[in-house]
């Protein structure tokens, strides 16, 4: 399994009043599931946004998967913190279909997209939810839909912002097991933020953690 490298050189990232990273130089090789931790307001989401090219650093350089964050976008799957809130009345499958080739111009003529969307929903054990409006789903179910959307485009690296937030312990463990399955079956590396202490069922070994604190990333 190939590592997904994030390389920072003298990186300065300030978002509003928050100093996310100050003069950071490091190479982060992500393999398996890595959990990004940090107190509220330390800039975890801003750091993830910088990896996606949504927040520009004030100085220094940042490369993701060997290229600039903007050029790396096709190889990264992203799951935002609050997914599925914009259009609650639209069926689940249409959210997933829209995320397949949604960046291209024009009217879609490819009828295979529905089939591809069902495949993605099957991967995240959400195929039975395909025709329900996304607004009626529980938090855990919505996370699985957002995960299916993140998987569209066959990414190498998944960046998940609080994928286990606001879930009860059973739903949290279920989704964590699902993430581990995706990592093992598809060879995906996963970087996710979380506040909870996480271990996979059947193993007391905690997941790899990195910490964001006082403008520094502790690997």
């Amino acid at each position: 399994m190939r590592a997904s490298d994030i390389v920072c050189h003298n990186l300065q990232l300030i978002v509003g009043p928050c100093v996310v990273l100050s003069d950071a130089t490091l190479k982060l090789s992500l393999t398996g599931i890595t959990v990004l931790r940090g107190n509220n307001g330390t800039g975890k989401t801003s750091f993830l946004h910088s990896l996606l090219g949504l927040e520009a650093p004030q100085q220094g350089s940042l490369t993701v998967l060997g290229t600039t964050p903007q050029k790396a976008r096709p190889y990264i799957g992203y799951m935002p913190q609050k997914a599925g809130e914009a259009a609650p009345m639209i069926p689940v499958i249409d959210h997933v279909i829209a995320s397949i080739s949604g960046t291209k111009w024009g009217f879609p003529l490819n009828l295979k997209r529905r089939h591809d969307a069902m495949t993605l929903l099957t991967l995240t054990n959400a195929q039975s939810l395909a025709h329900r409006p996304i607004g009626v789903l529980s938090g855990g179910e919505r996370q699985r839909i957002a995960l299916a959307q993140a998987l569209s485009g066959s990414p190498q690296l998944l960046i998940l912002d609080e994928p286990l937030a606001a879930l009860d312990p059973i739903a949290r463990q279920k989704n964590l097991v699902l993430l581990n399955q995706l990592h093992q079956q598809l060879g995906l590396n996963i970087l996710m933020t979380a506040h909870e202490s996480l271990t996979l069922d059947g193993s007391s070994k905690p997941l790899r953690e990195i910490w964001l604190k006082d403008g520094k990333l502790y690997v």
């Binding site: 976008r73 990264i76 997914a83 914009a86 249409d94 959210h95 829209a98 949604g102 111009w105 879609p108």
Partner: peptide, 23 residues
Amino acid sequence: LGALWRPLLFSSLSPDLAEARGV
């Protein structure tokens, strides 16, 4: 509308994800 269709629908349904994908 024909030209905008896909990114318009994508950014209407999932604005954060669409932006992260480069829309």
